[in-house]
Computed example of a mutant assay.
Amino acid sequence: MIKLLGKSTSINVRKVMWALAETGQPYEREDWGDGFRATNVPEFLALNPNAMVPVLVDCDFVLWESNSICRYLAGKVGRTDLLPRDPQARALVEQWMDWQATDLNSSWRYAFMALVREHAAFTDPAQIASSAAAWNRNVGILDRHLAANGPYAAGAQFSLADIVLGLSLNRWLKTPIERPAYTAIERYLELLRERPAYRELTGCA
Rank of each mutant, 00 (worst) to 15 (best):
L192S: 10
R179A: 06
L192T: 12
G140M: 02
Q127K: 14
L142E: 11
H145E: 10
A147D: 10
A148C: 01
T175G: 01
V139I: 15
G150M: 12
P151E: 06
L192Y: 04
A148R: 13
A134G: 15
A147F: 05
F158K: 01
E186M: 01
G155I: 03
L189T: 04
D162V: 05
D162F: 12
L173V: 02
N170T: 10
G150C: 09
A153M: 10
L165D: 01
D162T: 07
H145A: 02
E178T: 14
A161F: 08
W135I: 08
S131Q: 03
A153V: 13
A197N: 00
A153I: 08
R187M: 09
Y152N: 07
A181N: 02
S130I: 04
D162Y: 10
Y198H: 10
T183A: 15
Q127C: 04
H145P: 05
A156W: 03
A161V: 06
W172K: 02
A132C: 04
L160I: 07
E178L: 04
E194W: 01
V139E: 00
K174V: 08
T183K: 12
R171G: 00
R137Q: 12
F158M: 07
E190W: 03
S159C: 07
T175Y: 02
P176W: 03
A129F: 03
I177G: 00
G155S: 12
I177V: 15
A129E: 15
L160N: 09
G150N: 13
A148K: 15
A161W: 09
G140A: 05
Y198W: 15
A184V: 05
Y188G: 13
Q157K: 08
Y188L: 07
L160H: 05
I163L: 14
